[in-house]
Design a protein around this nucleic acid. Sequence first.
DNA 1: CCCTCGATCAC
DNA 2: CCTCATATCGAGGG
Length: 382
Amino acid sequence: MCELNGSAFSPDGKKESGLKIKTIFHIDFDYFFAQCEEVRNPMMKKSPIIVCVYSGREQDSGVVSTSNYIARNYGVKSGLSIKHAKNKLRDTKSFFIPIDLQYYKEISNKIMNIICSFSPFIEIRGVDECYLDVTFLLGHNSEYSINLAKTIKKTIKDQTGISSSIGISFNKILAKIASDYKKPDGLFLIDINNYKEIVYPFAIDKVPGIGPKTRKKLNDIKITTIEELVNAKIDNLIKICGRKLGYKLASICHPDFSRWQTNNLKQKQIMKIMTLKKEPRDSLDFRKIIDKISIEIVSGLVRNGLVYRNISIILILENLVNITRSKSMKLYSNEIDQLILQSNYLFDEILKSIDIKDVRRIGIKVSDLKQSTGQNTLNQYF
DNA sequence: CCCTCGATCAC
DNA sequence: CCTCATATCGAGGG
């Protein structure tokens, strides 16, 4: 996350003493999971491709993770249920493919490495996008920026077969808005001299960080466009969106003078959620599932040499309400027995307030992670 | 300050 | 109709 440097900018983005306007790229891999499947099996390329997360609850239950643009033309996009997608595509030859995160991560790593070779100032945000600060290479120059972006796009495409979209601007938020504006295979620059004409008319939900809830709250006080957003009083924004988001929203068109964070790659939590089969279940079934999830989580911890201190259990009910209970331990640990014991305890706590029949999904999360120092599996003192 | 819990976002 | 995983924030209680 970037923190603006307090008083260091002027509202209109003019340079102040010693501070340099940055050139930031936001690089986004187009319809990534589905495109990975196209690369693996190019003969599918001309047909709708739908990458699916099957829940196993019943035949064809689950949702669409990603689809290619051909499928999107039929109205099939992320979040749609697989049943609906199949219905919309019933007259076409289309490919429904189960999600294969391992494979996508491999390709993602390859691409991120390519990008790193252009600038070390990279901030990876998930498998399919990253920010790149290229100021040290070319200062602040539109023509150079566009040429470099073209080169990066071409290199990625040549070496991995994946097309991408790049947005260029003087801060991260506008760079991301820019990459979104012309995808797929896009390249768009929002310059310090023309950003108002471009982004002021945009609806506020183009801003990363504004989802349906925040949009509604802001619409209620008559803020619908980015122009209205940047002209709003910061105190109002903070009142409505909270301190952090309010401050960020007030600053979306300000130059980024923050020091670039070195990549914060350390994992902060591990979570596994399972959807239950649609059949009668009793408390014993849940104990077995808790065992199973716990094992997977601990194996994740051990693989990464991590210990946890906080355990949460998450229940999602049939009406999709979420309930969580969590507990902090005195000591760091990666022990399975402790995890199972505490998870069961937290599960029982929730069962006091709800009916076990209403549970649809169950998950466990470990957080407050740290690198385990020794090679052993003993408890660690902090 | 720490802990717990729900909300939100965006994949 | 409704998956899965991650990170972050703020409120409320101690």
